[in-house]
């Protein structure tokens, strides 16, 4: 090692040491006693994991109290902003909604003085939200329903003869339309812009046999109750249900990947405390803790080092799984979500 590098390391170390009291203050001591921050997310096992991994360390460090709310619902979010005083201070939203919300001015700008965004992979940092997890929509299926071979591809989901039983889809056009088109033979790289008519036509095939879930816990419950034999479900939820003894497995074929972001609703009463809760999320140890609980991938690459290797096959960011997956086009959904949601609702009722 040369002298100059040693010196540089030393200097950097000294700078870090000098900066650390300041950093500690930015991180905050227990100076938020009496502040209550409302954290809204998607409920169930995921929110439980977020509570343990982000909220509790935050409470311990700052003395603030975090109230859990949910399940997160884009419509409710919007209504809250319209009312002027949002009830939520931090919300966990999908990438698609992040884009829509930025366009409609639903979020506070991320305060880089309070959040060390450099800890996060730059792909997942936005001016208005910080990515917290990467997850995927997968084909989930009952391990007891198909003794002669499990479904693998999205086309199998639509094959009611070969794979009998009820299906489940998320009660939302997002990802559901992609699934239908992939099943109909559209190549993954030719997906966008979506051929919406074709997608709905394909969905008609299973519509009569489909139960729609609106929250992730419902998707798990439907498999636990054996109400459905196959359907679209998130990778972490399959992991969680399987851990709890449910007879469920997933296929990674053409998994559709998305990112969740933490955002601060515009007009939050506790903006600064909210930003600091998001900062707590960016720490590698907290992200690793969450991943170990529910198998959603971290956005801070440091965190991968502390994830149990046994979880590797469950992570959508594992090279093997990424290779087979595709990434949801957030920009497309930003521009089409509203229109397609209306069409989706009408289609369901028809």
């Amino acid at each position: 090692m040369t002298r100059s590098t040693t010196r540089r390391t030393l200097l950097a170390g000294a700078a870090a040491a000098a900066a650390s009291p300041f950093a500690a203050r930015a991180q905050g001591g227990p100076d938020l006693k009496g502040t209550t921050v409302v954290f809204a997310s998607w409920g169930g096992a995921y929110q439980d994991a977020e509570k343990v991994s982000y909220c509790e360390p935050f409470e311990k460090a700052t003395g603030a109290k975090v109230v859990q709310d949910g399940p997160m619902n884009p419509a409710k979010f919007r209504a809250m902003i319209a009312s002027g005083t949002p009830d939520w201070d931090v919300a966990d939203v999908t990438g698609g909604f992040l884009e829509v919300g930025i366009k409609d001015g639903l979020f506070e700008k991320i305060d880089t003085k309070l959040i060390t965004t450099s800890r996060i992979d730059p792909r997942f940092v936005s001016e208005y939200g910080v990515g917290c997890i990467v997850w995927s929509s997968n084909l989930g299926f009952s391990t007891t329903a198909f003794p002669n071979g499990a479904p693998k591809t999205w086309a199998d989901l639509f094959d009611l003869k070969k794979f009998p039983g009820k299906r489940t889809l998320q009660d939302s056009p997002t990802a559901s339309l992609e699934v239908a088109l992939l099943a109909d033979g559209v190549a993954a790289d030719k997906l966008y812009p979506l051929d919406v008519d074709r997608a709905f036509k394909k969905l008609d095939v299973i519509k009569e046999h489909t139960v729609f879930w609106s929250t992730n816990s419902q998707s798990q419950q439907l498999f636990v109750d054996r109400e459905v034999t196959a359907g679209v479900i998130l990778n972490g939820r399959v992991y969680d249900a399987a851990q709890k003894g449910a007879k469920i497995a997933l296929s990674w074929e053409q998994n559709i990947q998305q990112v969740d972001y933490l955002v601060v609703p515009r007009g939050s009463r506790n903006r600064d405390a909210a930003m600091r809760l998001i900062d707590t999320m960016t720490l590698a140890e907290n992200q690793a803790k969450l991943a170990n609980l529910i198998a959603y991938s971290p956005t801070n690459n440091e965190a991968f080092k502390s994830i149990d290797p046994k979880l590797e096959p469950w992570l959508c960011t594992a090279p093997e799984n990424t290779k087979r997956g595709l990434v949801l086009d957030q920009a497309y959904w930003r521009d089409n979500l509203k229109k397609l949601t209306e069409r989706w609702t009408a289609w369901k009722l028809a």
Binding site: W42, G43, Q47, T215
Partner: peptide, 21 residues
Amino acid sequence: SSARVRPVAVQMWSNLMGDFD
């Protein structure tokens, strides 16, 4: 109601929607 002021019935509803345990 809101997250800060939430009676039991609403907490039950939210549990039923989100948790199902």
